[in-house]
């Protein structure tokens, strides 16, 4: 290598880095990109992001340093990224939760302040029960609960979590009086289900699938319109109870976002990198094994996905009496 040339190149990059803080796509990224993960290390959001990002890095030609910033159902991380410069050097790696912040009274910053880089995948909820529960199907469960009101313990992860939305969804069409026992995440709730501290848990398929395959818990019904390839024997709620079909498919999702106002060419580069990352073999295998549905949406389709999700879910929890503010106040239309 030619030394003076190297030095010159270094100085050049340095000066461009200094004088042009708003990076242009041709140089982007000139430094490490921070990826702020809303949920803790080892969780499903974390796993998804750490699988897809190394592939996106290859295309970006830069490093993405991923950090977990937990707390406040993801609101801490969301606010942090919102407070950074919209230069594409801070990515928000999150789940569905911010779309509920407004109605849950957790501030007024949600994904409308962010541009979706990629809505990577969607989870499918499933109702699972302790092996000793005196019912095996959705119909039997409903009958048992109606005969023994408040006796059956449903695991939950706090208002706005997947279990609470699924429970609200079920209650919107069927009279179900159950006792909700809250846990701080679906992992601990699944553990409690296996130990019999709760009887039923509306979980995400990806989190529950290994325990189902191992026979530690039993599946009751899949909250979707059609059975999944990962567990073909489990009936789908939309098929057995068509009154629910209008809500489905519904499920939590994972996405990568940047703050609104990020230069378009930077967004384009990120969108491209993550779209390619989502096509990688590792990612497809991970999603398939865990029963997630790959979406890989960006641009307009991603925006539509988010608005539809927000409208359906906020109204569901508002009608169930779980919300602190009506979606109407924020101009969220009823589905």
């Amino acid at each position: 290598m030619n030394r003076p040339l190297v030095k010159f190149a270094a100085i050049l990059t340095l000066t461009t880095g200094l004088t042009a803080p708003a990076a242009f796509a041709q140089d982007y990224p000139v430094k490490e990109i921070q990826g702020i993960i809303q949920w803790g290390a080892g969780g499903s959001t974390d796993t998804v992001m750490r699988t897809v990002t190394p592939h996106a890095e290859e295309l970006l030609g830069g490093k993405v340093v991923m950090k977990n910033m937990t707390g406040g159902v993801g609101a801490i991380a969301t606010k942090f990224v919102y407070a950074q410069k919209p230069d594409g050097y801070t990515l928000l790696m999150g789940a569905e939760n911010p779309l509920l912040y407004k109605v849950m009274g957790l501030g007024d910053i949600d994904y409308s302040e962010f541009t979706p880089v990629n809505i990577l995948a969607r989870g499918v909820p499933i109702l699972v029960a302790n092996n000793d529960a005196p019912f095996n199907t959705f119909a039997e469960m409903v009958a048992y609960i109606q005969a023994n009101p408040n006796e059956v313990k449903f695991g939950s992860t706090g208002p706005g979590g997947v279990p609470s939305v699924v429970t609200a969804l079920l209650k919107s069409k069927t009279d179900l009086q159950v006792t909700d026992v809250p846990y701080d995440g679906d992992g601990p709730a699944l553990t409690a289900l296996q130990g019999g501290a709760v009887d039923v848990l509306p979980a995400v398929l990806g989190a529950a699938i290994e325990a189902i395959k191992g026979g530690r818990i039993k599946p009751i019904v899949l909250i979707d319109n059609a059975p999944t390839a990962a567990l073909p024997d489990v009936p789908a709620l939309g098929a057995s109870n068509p009154e629910y079909a209008e809500y489905l498919p519904w499920g939590p999702f994972f996405g990568v976002f940047v703050k609104n106002g990020t230069p378009e060419d930077v967004v384009a580069k990120l969108v491209d990198a993550y779209a390619k990352g989502a096509e990688s073999e590792d990612f497809i295998k991970l999603m398939g094994d865990r029963g997630y549905v790959i979406e890989s949406l960006s641009g307009k389709p991603a925006q539509d996905f988010l608005s539809k999700w927000q409208s359906l879910t906020t109204w569901l929890i508002a009608d169930a009496g779980l919300a602190k503010a009506s979606p109407e106040e924020f101009g969220i239309p009823r589905p």
């Binding site: 796993t47 325990a211 530690r216 590792d282 991970l286």
Partner: peptide, 9 residues
């Protein structure tokens, strides 16, 4: 999980 294994029972 990332290495393609499925930890569970």
């Amino acid at each position: 999980y990332i290495h393609g294994l499925n930890p569970g029972p």
